[in-house]
Protein backbone atom coordinates (compact mmCIF):
# COMPACT_ATOMS: atom_id res chain seq x y z
CA UNK A 1 0.00 0.00 0.00
CA UNK A 2 2.75 2.45 1.02
CA UNK A 3 4.64 1.68 -2.17
CA UNK A 4 1.48 2.38 -4.12
CA UNK A 5 1.02 5.75 -2.43
CA UNK A 6 4.63 6.75 -3.05
CA UNK A 7 4.37 5.71 -6.68
CA UNK A 8 1.16 7.64 -7.14
CA UNK A 9 2.77 10.66 -5.53
CA UNK A 10 5.63 10.66 -8.01
CA UNK A 11 3.17 10.30 -10.86
CA UNK A 12 1.49 13.49 -9.68
CA UNK A 13 4.55 15.64 -10.38
CA UNK A 14 4.47 15.55 -14.19
CA UNK A 15 0.67 15.88 -14.11
CA UNK A 16 1.00 18.96 -11.94
CA UNK A 17 3.69 20.53 -14.14
CA UNK A 18 1.65 19.85 -17.27
CA UNK A 19 -1.53 21.26 -15.77
CA UNK A 20 0.12 24.46 -14.50
CA UNK A 21 1.95 25.01 -17.77
CA UNK A 22 -1.29 24.62 -19.69
CA UNK A 23 -3.08 27.02 -17.34
CA UNK A 24 -0.29 29.54 -17.71
CA UNK A 25 -0.30 29.27 -21.49
CA UNK A 26 -4.06 29.70 -21.69
CA UNK A 27 -3.93 32.71 -19.41
CA UNK A 28 -1.45 34.28 -21.84
CA UNK A 29 -3.68 33.69 -24.86
CA UNK A 30 -6.23 36.21 -23.61
CA UNK A 31 -5.77 39.50 -25.45
CA UNK A 32 -4.51 42.46 -23.45
CA UNK A 33 -3.48 42.48 -19.80
CA UNK A 34 -4.68 44.08 -16.62
CA UNK A 35 -3.34 47.48 -17.70
CA UNK A 36 -5.39 47.53 -20.91
CA UNK A 37 -8.47 49.07 -19.28
CA UNK A 38 -6.32 51.78 -17.78
CA UNK A 39 -5.28 52.85 -21.25
CA UNK A 40 -8.82 54.10 -21.90
CA UNK A 41 -8.60 56.73 -19.17
CA UNK A 42 -8.26 60.11 -20.90
CA UNK A 43 -5.66 61.42 -18.46
CA UNK A 44 -3.28 58.47 -18.09
CA UNK A 45 -0.15 58.81 -20.20
CA UNK A 46 1.01 55.87 -22.33
CA UNK A 47 4.50 56.12 -20.76
CA UNK A 48 2.95 55.47 -17.37
CA UNK A 49 1.29 52.31 -18.65
CA UNK A 50 4.56 51.10 -20.16
CA UNK A 51 6.40 51.84 -16.92
CA UNK A 52 3.84 49.90 -14.89
CA UNK A 53 3.96 47.05 -17.39
CA UNK A 54 7.69 46.70 -16.81
CA UNK A 55 7.28 47.09 -13.03
CA UNK A 56 4.95 44.10 -13.03
CA UNK A 57 7.23 42.16 -15.39
CA UNK A 58 4.51 42.00 -18.03
CA UNK A 59 6.91 43.20 -20.73
CA UNK A 60 9.07 40.08 -20.31
CA UNK A 61 8.78 37.13 -22.73
CA UNK A 62 6.22 34.58 -21.64
CA UNK A 63 8.90 31.94 -20.99
CA UNK A 64 10.66 34.25 -18.53
CA UNK A 65 7.35 35.01 -16.82
CA UNK A 66 6.58 31.31 -16.53
CA UNK A 67 9.99 30.37 -15.13
CA UNK A 68 9.76 33.18 -12.56
CA UNK A 69 6.28 32.19 -11.53
CA UNK A 70 7.22 28.49 -11.33
CA UNK A 71 10.30 29.35 -9.29
CA UNK A 72 8.18 31.22 -6.79
CA UNK A 73 5.61 28.45 -6.75
CA UNK A 74 8.28 25.89 -5.83
CA UNK A 75 8.99 27.99 -2.75
CA UNK A 76 5.30 28.01 -1.88
CA UNK A 77 4.77 31.56 -3.11
CA UNK A 78 1.76 31.98 -5.39
CA UNK A 79 2.91 35.42 -6.51
CA UNK A 80 1.53 38.95 -6.15
CA UNK A 81 -1.90 40.19 -7.09
CA UNK A 82 -1.48 43.10 -9.54
CA UNK A 83 -4.67 44.72 -8.47
CA UNK A 84 -4.29 44.74 -4.70
CA UNK A 85 -0.49 44.64 -4.61
CA UNK A 86 -0.59 41.80 -2.10
CA UNK A 87 0.42 38.15 -1.98
CA UNK A 88 -2.14 36.07 -3.84
CA UNK A 89 -2.71 33.87 -0.82
CA UNK A 90 -4.04 36.88 1.15
CA UNK A 91 -6.48 37.54 -1.62
CA UNK A 92 -7.89 34.03 -1.92
CA UNK A 93 -7.48 32.51 1.54
CA UNK A 94 -10.55 33.96 3.18
CA UNK A 95 -12.90 33.51 0.19
CA UNK A 96 -11.82 29.87 0.04
CA UNK A 97 -12.71 29.43 3.69
CA UNK A 98 -16.13 31.01 3.10
CA UNK A 99 -16.77 28.80 0.09
CA UNK A 100 -15.82 25.81 2.22
CA UNK A 101 -18.48 26.68 4.80
CA UNK A 102 -21.06 26.77 2.06
CA UNK A 103 -19.84 23.54 0.51
CA UNK A 104 -19.86 21.69 3.84
CA UNK A 105 -23.40 22.70 4.70
CA UNK A 106 -24.64 21.90 1.21
CA UNK A 107 -22.96 18.47 1.27
CA UNK A 108 -24.54 17.82 4.64
CA UNK A 109 -27.95 18.90 3.30
CA UNK A 110 -27.47 16.82 0.18
CA UNK A 111 -26.67 13.66 2.11
CA UNK A 112 -29.31 14.27 4.73
CA UNK A 113 -32.03 14.50 2.11
CA UNK A 114 -30.70 12.45 -0.79
CA UNK A 115 -29.86 9.23 1.14
CA UNK A 116 -33.35 8.77 2.63
CA UNK A 117 -34.94 9.89 -0.64
CA UNK A 118 -32.87 7.44 -2.67
CA UNK A 119 -33.62 4.59 -0.29
CA UNK A 120 -37.30 5.44 -0.25
CA UNK A 121 -37.42 5.55 -4.04
CA UNK A 122 -35.75 2.16 -4.28
CA UNK A 123 -37.94 0.51 -1.68
CA UNK A 124 -41.15 2.01 -3.02
CA UNK A 125 -40.27 1.83 -6.68
CA UNK A 126 -42.75 3.57 -9.03
CA UNK A 127 -44.89 4.76 -6.12
CA UNK A 128 -46.23 8.32 -6.07
CA UNK A 129 -43.50 9.25 -3.56
CA UNK A 130 -40.82 7.91 -5.93
CA UNK A 131 -42.24 10.04 -8.76
CA UNK A 132 -42.32 13.13 -6.56
CA UNK A 133 -38.68 12.64 -5.54
CA UNK A 134 -37.74 12.21 -9.21
CA UNK A 135 -39.58 15.32 -10.32
CA UNK A 136 -38.03 17.48 -7.61
CA UNK A 137 -34.54 16.17 -8.07
CA UNK A 138 -34.63 16.67 -11.84
CA UNK A 139 -36.04 20.13 -11.26
CA UNK A 140 -33.01 20.89 -9.10
CA UNK A 141 -30.67 19.47 -11.74
CA UNK A 142 -32.24 21.41 -14.60
CA UNK A 143 -32.61 24.86 -13.06
CA UNK A 144 -29.43 26.97 -13.08
CA UNK A 145 -28.16 27.85 -9.61
CA UNK A 146 -28.12 31.61 -10.02
CA UNK A 147 -31.66 31.60 -11.37
CA UNK A 148 -32.99 29.36 -8.62
CA UNK A 149 -31.38 31.69 -6.09
CA UNK A 150 -33.17 34.66 -7.69
CA UNK A 151 -36.47 32.77 -7.53
CA UNK A 152 -35.94 32.06 -3.83
CA UNK A 153 -35.04 35.71 -3.19
CA UNK A 154 -38.25 36.76 -4.88
CA UNK A 155 -40.10 34.22 -2.74
CA UNK A 156 -38.54 35.70 0.40
CA UNK A 157 -39.75 39.18 -0.60
CA UNK A 158 -43.23 37.85 -1.43
CA UNK A 159 -43.31 36.11 1.95
CA UNK A 160 -42.46 39.41 3.63
CA UNK A 161 -45.36 41.14 1.90
CA UNK A 162 -47.62 38.30 2.98
CA UNK A 163 -46.51 38.16 6.63
CA UNK A 164 -46.73 41.95 6.85
CA UNK A 165 -50.35 41.96 5.68
CA UNK A 166 -51.32 38.89 7.66
CA UNK A 167 -49.42 39.32 10.95
CA UNK A 168 -47.81 42.76 10.72
CA UNK A 169 -44.40 41.05 10.55
CA UNK A 170 -42.36 43.22 8.15
CA UNK A 171 -39.09 41.24 8.27
CA UNK A 172 -37.36 38.85 5.91
CA UNK A 173 -37.44 35.19 6.98
CA UNK A 174 -34.03 34.64 5.39
CA UNK A 175 -31.42 37.20 4.33
CA UNK A 176 -31.19 37.90 0.61
CA UNK A 177 -27.48 38.73 0.48
CA UNK A 178 -24.26 38.53 2.40
CA UNK A 179 -22.76 36.28 5.04
CA UNK A 180 -23.35 38.24 8.24
CA UNK A 181 -25.77 40.80 9.68
CA UNK A 182 -24.85 44.42 10.22
CA UNK A 183 -24.49 43.96 13.98
CA UNK A 184 -22.44 40.78 13.63
CA UNK A 185 -19.46 42.10 15.56
CA UNK A 186 -21.63 42.86 18.59
CA UNK A 187 -22.99 39.30 18.75
CA UNK A 188 -21.82 36.55 21.10
CA UNK A 189 -19.75 33.78 19.47
CA UNK A 190 -22.82 31.57 19.53
CA UNK A 191 -24.94 34.33 18.01
CA UNK A 192 -22.31 34.84 15.32
CA UNK A 193 -22.37 31.14 14.50
CA UNK A 194 -26.15 31.15 14.06
CA UNK A 195 -26.02 34.39 12.09
CA UNK A 196 -23.68 32.81 9.55
CA UNK A 197 -25.78 29.62 9.47
CA UNK A 198 -28.90 31.70 8.88
CA UNK A 199 -27.23 33.51 5.98
CA UNK A 200 -25.85 30.24 4.64
CA UNK A 201 -29.11 28.32 4.53
CA UNK A 202 -30.53 29.56 1.19
CA UNK A 203 -27.30 29.43 -0.86
CA UNK A 204 -26.45 25.99 0.55
CA UNK A 205 -29.94 24.77 -0.23
CA UNK A 206 -29.58 26.01 -3.81
CA UNK A 207 -26.25 24.21 -4.21
CA UNK A 208 -27.60 21.04 -2.62
CA UNK A 209 -30.60 20.82 -4.98
CA UNK A 210 -28.27 20.76 -7.96
CA UNK A 211 -26.61 17.56 -6.76
CA UNK A 212 -29.83 15.93 -5.62
CA UNK A 213 -30.88 14.36 -8.93
CA UNK A 214 -27.63 12.58 -9.66
CA UNK A 215 -27.28 11.37 -6.09
CA UNK A 216 -30.79 9.99 -5.61
CA UNK A 217 -30.97 8.36 -9.04
CA UNK A 218 -27.64 6.56 -8.67
CA UNK A 219 -28.40 5.52 -5.11
CA UNK A 220 -31.83 4.29 -6.20
CA UNK A 221 -30.35 2.21 -9.01
CA UNK A 222 -27.72 0.75 -6.68
CA UNK A 223 -30.29 -0.06 -4.03
CA UNK A 224 -32.67 -1.67 -6.52
CA UNK A 225 -29.84 -3.86 -7.72
CA UNK A 226 -28.79 -4.93 -4.23
CA UNK A 227 -32.34 -5.41 -2.96
CA UNK A 228 -32.88 -7.94 -5.72
CA UNK A 229 -29.69 -9.87 -4.94
CA UNK A 230 -29.30 -13.25 -3.28
CA UNK A 231 -27.79 -12.12 0.02
CA UNK A 232 -30.82 -9.88 0.66
CA UNK A 233 -33.14 -12.79 0.03
CA UNK A 234 -31.05 -14.81 2.49
CA UNK A 235 -31.23 -12.03 5.05
CA UNK A 236 -34.98 -11.83 4.72
CA UNK A 237 -35.26 -15.63 4.84
CA UNK A 238 -33.48 -15.77 8.18
CA UNK A 239 -36.15 -13.43 9.54
CA UNK A 240 -34.41 -10.01 9.71
CA UNK A 241 -36.66 -6.98 9.99
CA UNK A 242 -37.27 -4.99 6.83
CA UNK A 243 -35.49 -1.92 8.27
CA UNK A 244 -32.36 -3.90 9.07
CA UNK A 245 -32.31 -5.48 5.65
CA UNK A 246 -32.67 -2.15 3.89
CA UNK A 247 -30.26 -0.05 5.90
CA UNK A 248 -27.68 -2.60 7.04
CA UNK A 249 -27.46 -5.01 4.18
CA UNK A 250 -28.52 -3.10 1.08
CA UNK A 251 -27.55 0.49 1.81
CA UNK A 252 -24.00 -0.28 2.95
CA UNK A 253 -22.77 -1.73 -0.33
CA UNK A 254 -24.94 0.69 -2.30
CA UNK A 255 -23.27 3.70 -0.73
CA UNK A 256 -19.72 2.61 -1.64
CA UNK A 257 -19.40 4.72 -4.80
CA UNK A 258 -20.42 7.81 -2.83
CA UNK A 259 -17.90 7.18 -0.07
CA UNK A 260 -15.25 6.75 -2.73
CA UNK A 261 -16.40 10.03 -4.24
CA UNK A 262 -15.66 11.94 -1.04
CA UNK A 263 -12.10 12.51 -2.23
CA UNK A 264 -13.48 14.10 -5.36
CA UNK A 265 -15.31 16.63 -3.21
CA UNK A 266 -12.04 18.09 -1.99
CA UNK A 267 -11.51 20.58 -4.83
CA UNK A 268 -15.23 21.43 -4.69
CA UNK A 269 -14.79 22.55 -1.11
CA UNK A 270 -12.65 25.50 -2.09
CA UNK A 271 -13.55 25.75 -5.77
CA UNK A 272 -16.60 27.85 -5.09
CA UNK A 273 -20.29 27.18 -5.35
CA UNK A 274 -20.65 29.01 -8.66
CA UNK A 275 -22.79 31.96 -9.55
CA UNK A 276 -25.07 31.52 -6.55
CA UNK A 277 -22.26 33.14 -4.59
CA UNK A 278 -22.49 36.22 -6.80
CA UNK A 279 -26.29 36.31 -6.80
CA UNK A 280 -26.45 36.12 -3.00
CA UNK A 281 -23.30 38.16 -2.32
CA UNK A 282 -21.66 35.24 -0.57
CA UNK A 283 -18.00 36.29 -0.13
CA UNK A 284 -16.72 33.00 -1.58
CA UNK A 285 -14.17 32.21 -4.19
CA UNK A 286 -16.44 32.56 -7.25
CA UNK A 287 -16.79 36.37 -7.03
CA UNK A 288 -13.05 36.65 -6.34
CA UNK A 289 -12.27 34.43 -9.30
CA UNK A 290 -14.60 36.33 -11.63
CA UNK A 291 -13.21 39.66 -10.52
CA UNK A 292 -9.66 38.43 -11.07
CA UNK A 293 -10.62 37.15 -14.53
CA UNK A 294 -12.29 40.45 -15.36
CA UNK A 295 -9.36 42.55 -14.29
CA UNK A 296 -6.89 40.01 -15.71
CA UNK A 297 -5.19 39.67 -12.37
CA UNK A 298 -3.65 36.47 -13.74
CA UNK A 299 -1.64 35.36 -10.72
CA UNK A 300 -4.80 35.27 -8.63
CA UNK A 301 -6.48 33.17 -11.31
CA UNK A 302 -3.45 30.89 -11.59
CA UNK A 303 -3.11 30.63 -7.80
CA UNK A 304 -6.63 29.41 -7.58
CA UNK A 305 -6.12 26.94 -10.41
CA UNK A 306 -2.94 25.61 -8.76
CA UNK A 307 -4.68 25.03 -5.45
CA UNK A 308 -7.67 23.31 -7.02
CA UNK A 309 -5.35 21.20 -9.18
CA UNK A 310 -3.42 20.05 -6.12
CA UNK A 311 -6.62 19.30 -4.25
CA UNK A 312 -8.03 17.45 -7.23
CA UNK A 313 -4.96 15.25 -7.37
CA UNK A 314 -4.95 14.59 -3.64
CA UNK A 315 -8.70 14.01 -3.80
CA UNK A 316 -8.33 11.42 -6.54
CA UNK A 317 -5.67 9.61 -4.57
CA UNK A 318 -7.82 9.76 -1.48
CA UNK A 319 -10.80 8.37 -3.41
CA UNK A 320 -8.77 5.41 -4.59
CA UNK A 321 -7.56 4.70 -1.07
CA UNK A 322 -11.04 5.06 0.41
CA UNK A 323 -12.38 2.69 -2.19
CA UNK A 324 -9.86 0.09 -1.12
CA UNK A 325 -10.83 0.66 2.49
CA UNK A 326 -14.58 0.23 2.02
CA UNK A 327 -14.64 -2.30 -0.80
CA UNK A 328 -12.97 -5.58 0.17
CA UNK A 329 -12.74 -6.59 -3.50
CA UNK A 330 -10.17 -3.89 -4.23
CA UNK A 331 -6.51 -4.27 -3.22
CA UNK A 332 -3.48 -2.21 -4.31
CA UNK A 333 -0.11 -3.87 -4.48
Amino acid sequence: MLVYIVRRFFQLIPTFLGATMLAFLISQLVPGDFLTQKALEPNVRPETIERMRSQFGLDQPITVQYVRWMGNLMQGNLGQSFVSNQPVINRIGRPMRNSMYLALLSIFMLWAVAVPAGVYSAVRQYSVGDQVVSVFSYFGLAIPNFFFAQVLILLIFVTRSFTKDAFGFNQLVFPVAGMTSGNYLQMSPWGQFWDVMWHMFIPSFVVATAGMAGFTRVLRAQMVEYLASDFIRTARAKGLAQRGVTYKHALRPAIIPFVAGIGGLLPDLVGGAGLVEVTMSWPGITPTFLEALNSQDIYVVLGLLVITTILLMIGNLLSDLLLAAVDPRIRYN
Binding site: F157, V176, A177, V278, T279, M280
Partner: peptide, 13 residues
Protein backbone atom coordinates in the same frame (compact mmCIF):
# COMPACT_ATOMS: atom_id res chain seq x y z
CA UNK B 1 -22.24 43.18 -2.41
CA UNK B 2 -21.37 40.71 -5.16
CA UNK B 3 -22.98 42.80 -7.88
CA UNK B 4 -25.58 45.50 -8.42
CA UNK B 5 -28.43 42.98 -8.42
CA UNK B 6 -27.41 41.91 -4.95
CA UNK B 7 -27.16 45.57 -3.91
CA UNK B 8 -30.69 46.15 -5.23
CA UNK B 9 -31.89 43.20 -3.16
CA UNK B 10 -30.25 44.70 -0.08
CA UNK B 11 -31.99 48.00 -0.77
CA UNK B 12 -35.37 46.32 -1.12
CA UNK B 13 -34.69 44.34 2.02
Amino acid sequence: AGDLDAALNLFIA
